[in-house]
């Protein structure tokens, strides 16, 4: 059984005078006990999709099953078993770290002070235990938001851009924590992110979403293969190179005097490309690297 199954899901936001299609024809199966990434540009529909799965929204059409329960008719059963954390760290301002966690655990029907204390320890929030939410640093707020997502021992956690706006070292520690918790607890995590490095580091599988539609799905390797992009050859040249059409080149990016060629195999294509480019000027530098998720993302977002 999958953690989440979406079948022809549509989400249309309607108001009195307008209608906006946020998601269309979404079909998706999220496996259990994995970290699953939902990637896409701003406004692609990532947060809408995650909110639908978390039962905060109700789809206009289609069917969503979370942990075997229907999100429309059995949403309360789902809510017992899931939780969510967002990159916009907002909780009740005047409640302390302890009080916020205690309050939310009560809302899950759990009255366990010891478990709250353990959670505070687990997320290294001991020194801020009695500090009100609005007096915490952004990093500590984010830690608390993440700790809150574990008050009910969920089977499935949705993380909506969990490291947004954090300093790189804090973000890195939080990512390590997410990976550790997923492995330690054997749960499913569905996360949206803007940071490709985050997706690369954390996600076992990824879906790309653009303009409300899923454009690709698979493991990182599968996605790269899907686009037949394996290597990126970057050439810096003195001179102007016109548009080139070369065999085995799937895309070309220009950045000033720098040209990037996405190819199936650098080994097989490098000599041919370099020879062609050299006709238009002196080559200053050549570099080759394996295509990363960001390159795949850029290609899919076009």
């Amino acid at each position: 059984m999958h953690s989440v199954e979406c079948e022809d899901v549509w989400m249309i936001y309607r108001s009195l005078f307008s209608e906006k299609v946020a998601l269309k024809e979404v079909n998706l199966k999220i496996p259990r006990n994995k970290i699953y990434g939902i990637l896409g540009p701003n406004g692609a529909g990532k947060t809408t999709l995650i909110s639908l799965m978390a039962t905060l929204l109700r789809q206009t059409r289609g069917r969503i099953e979370v942990l075997g329960y229907d999100t429309i008719s059995e949403f309360r059963e789902i809510r017992k078993r899931i939780n969510i954390a967002s990159g916009n760290p907002n909780l009740i301002w005047s409640l302390t770290v302890y009080e916020n966690l205690r309050y939310y655990s009560l809302l899950y029907g759990i009255n366990d002070r010891k478990a709250v204390e353990e959670l505070i320890k687990e997320f290294e929030l001991e020194e801020f235990r009695d500090v009100e939410f609005n007096k915490l640093s952004t990093g500590s707020k984010q830690k608390l938001i993440l700790a809150r997502a574990f008050v009910n021992n969920p089977e499935l956690v949705f993380l909506d851009e969990p490291t947004k706006g954090l300093d790189p070292p804090v973000a890195r520690r939080l990512r390590e924590k997410i990976r550790f918790l997923q492995k330690d607890l054997g749960i499913t995590i569905v996360l949206t992110t803007h940071y490709m490095s985050e997706a690369e580091m954390l996600c076992d599988r990824i879906t790309f979403i653009n303009r409300g539609k899923i454009v690709a799905e698979g493991t990182k390797e599968e996605l790269k293969r899907l686009l037949k992009m394996r290597d990126k050859i970057t050439i810096e040249i003195e001179g102007i190179v016109p548009d080139l059409r070369l065999e085995g080149v799937f895309a070309v990016e220009r950045d000033g005097n720098q040209l990037s060629f996405y190819v199936d195999s650098a080994e097989a294509r490098l000599w041919e490309i370099a020879k062609e480019v050299a006709r238009f000027g002196r080559i200053k530098n050549i570099s080759v690297k394996e295509v990363d998720l960001e390159d795949v993302f850029n290609e899919l977002a076009k």
Binding site: S51, A54, T55, L56, R76, E77, R79, K80, I82, N83, I84, S86, N88, N90, L91, I92, W93, Y104, L107, Y108, G109, R148, N152
Partner: peptide
């Protein structure tokens, strides 16, 4: 209103509470 002012409404509504609670 407390949830709306602190923009934490989603964290209350994602819990298995009912309007009666």
């Amino acid at each position: 209103l407390f949830d709306m002012w602190s923009k934490s409404l989603r964290y209350t509504f994602v819990t298995p509470i009912s309007i009666f609670n």
